[in-house]
Each structure stands twice: as C-alpha cells, then as structure tokens.
Design a protein around this nucleic acid. Structure first.
Lengths: 143, 143
DNA sequence: ATAAAATAGTGGACTTTGTCCACTATTTTG
DNA sequence: CAAAATAGTGGACAAAGTCCACTATTTTAT
C-alpha cells in the first residue's frame, strides 16, 4: 500500500511528463498566425456558438483586457464578429464568421493530425486503453 | 469499437482538461519570486546534482540565451553556483547552493501541498487508482 | 424612482517571458 | 592544423500577459 506522499510524487512525475506531451502537441500552432490563447478563444466561441466576452473570460480564466485585445485582433482579421447583445447593451455577442469557422476547422485538423501522429504506432486496442485511462482520470478528479 | 478519430477527440478533451489541472497546480508558483521555467531549471539541476547548461537546454527544450539569463539570475540570487567544467573549458558545471536546495525544497513542498489538496477528497484507493492510470498512460505513450 | 454598487468591455502603460542573432572561446573532426 | 561543431553570453526585439483607470450600462437596495 502506497502512501499519499508517494501518490503525490507520482502525480508530479506524470505532470512533468504530460506537460511535455502537451507542449509537443501545441508546437505546431507556432507556425500559424495565432497563439494558443487565440485558438482557445476561437474554440470557446465555436462550442458556444454565440458567446459573450465574459463567458470566454470565465471559461479560460483570462484577463479581460487581454481578451479584449485578442477579440479585437480576431475581428480585424475577419475571424469573428462582435455585435451588441440585445438583452444587455454592455455585453458583446460574439460568433465566428464563415472565414473564422474555416480557419478554426483547419487548425483543428492540424491538431488532430498531431495527435494522430502521437498514437499512430499504437494498436487500436492500445488507443482505446489510453482513452479509457484518460476518462478514468477525469472522472476521479471530478469527484 | 471506437474509431481513431473518436480516440483523437477524446484525447483532445483530456488535454484541455489536464491543461487546466496543470495550470491550477502551477498557479501558486506565481506567488514565489521564480517563474515556472526557473523552477524547472532548479529541478533539472537538483536531479542531475551537477549539470551543464547544455544538459538543461536539452532536457527542457529551452533557448540557450534564455537559459543563460535564467542561470545568471539564479546565480545572482545565490541559488546556484557556476564553475568551469574541468573537462571542457567551454562548459559550466552548475549546482544548487545550500540556499538553493533549501529554496527548492520549500517550493517542492508547496507543490506537494497543492497536489495534496487536489486529491484530498479522494479515498486512498482512489488515489492509487489515479496514479495507476497515470502510469498506464505514460507506459502506453512511451511505446 | 433613484443613488450606489456591480458588471461588461476598452485602452494605456507596463512587466514578464521567450526568440533570434551575432559574437567569443573552446573542442572536435578530417 | 584549418574548418566545423559546441558551449555559453548579451543585444535587440517580439510576444504574452497583467494592472489599473475609465466609460457605459444594468442591478440592487432603499
């Protein structure tokens, strides 16, 4: 039976390992014109369809001023549109433009491809096992 | 039977989830005088006992100029000592000072504490399961 | 109804973090 | 021993992120 201290050390080792995995997977985004944060903003808009800046802020725990600048850039690039929320004149209603959807889709496919490479040497069974362990971790940590 | 595409989507969901976990755990370091990169450098020196800058570079995939500045700060703060390697006069031999060891130990304990909080509501059995899933992921991905 | 407090977002000014490149000093290779 | 490779430094800059003050609304409490 292992102690809590041992568990902690093992979790830290995993964190170091997985930080590197994530870093590796995200590296390809450096070749795009958009930063990790910008892509994550697009993701939040994409899943929410129509979101307010404050919702993105909450989802990402990002500074509102920083977010404001990101949204400005994305709007300038024609990736998103901002319109005043009808319910609340302080708030913006943000959504991806057709161009934005297309770009996001392209970035997504590139990300998928990266992960595809990560697991390509694994058998189908191993891939399923991997996913299963990930689900378990999420479910344990969400307790 | 799930497809590879489904596996990829699940892995991406896990990555988003775990990125947040890691972000949360690292947040406490913001209160220290040292950045994530600086602490990671201390870690590399600590596990290597006596390392060269080039080894840290390789381990962290960090720019050598950036590393040089980090080491300069750590030396100035009395955290590390740099001495010329006897075998190679181009290279530095770097190690933690007593002060550096103490600091690193303190930071480590704080990190341990963070993880302790993350898992404190879990039963001992659940903690072991968590670690076991983590080990499995490492072992699958290292194939 | 209305004054005070809260919320949504913007922009200025700044710090931190990270990158690129040219350079010196050694060591290795052919 | 000359050419190429390696180790590290520092200048100059770019990217990422933070803090604060501000305007414009909306909500809350009296």
């Amino acid at each position: 039976m292992l102690t809590k201290q041992t568990a902690i050390q093992n979790i830290r080792a995993f964190n170091r390992f997985y930080t590197d995995v994530i870093g590796l997977l995200n590296k390809h985004l450096l070749d795009s014109d958009y930063s990790l944060a910008e892509v994550r903003v697009m993701y939040e808009i994409s899943v929410g369809k129509e979101v307010q800046a404050s919702q993105i802020m909450a989802a990402m725990s990002i500074d509102k001023s920083y977010l404001s600048r990101i949204l400005k850039k994305l709007e300038k690039d024609g990736i998103i549109t901002k319109s005043l929320s009808p319910q609340d004149a302080r708030a913006l209603s943000i959504s991806l433009t057709a161009k934005g959807k297309k770009l996001f889709d392209t970035l997504n496919k590139a990300s998928d491809h990266q992960i595809g490479q990560l697991i390509e040497t694994l058998s189908s069974a191993q891939q399923q096992e991997l996913v299963s362990h990930m689900h378990s971790i999420i479910s344990i940590l969400n307790k």
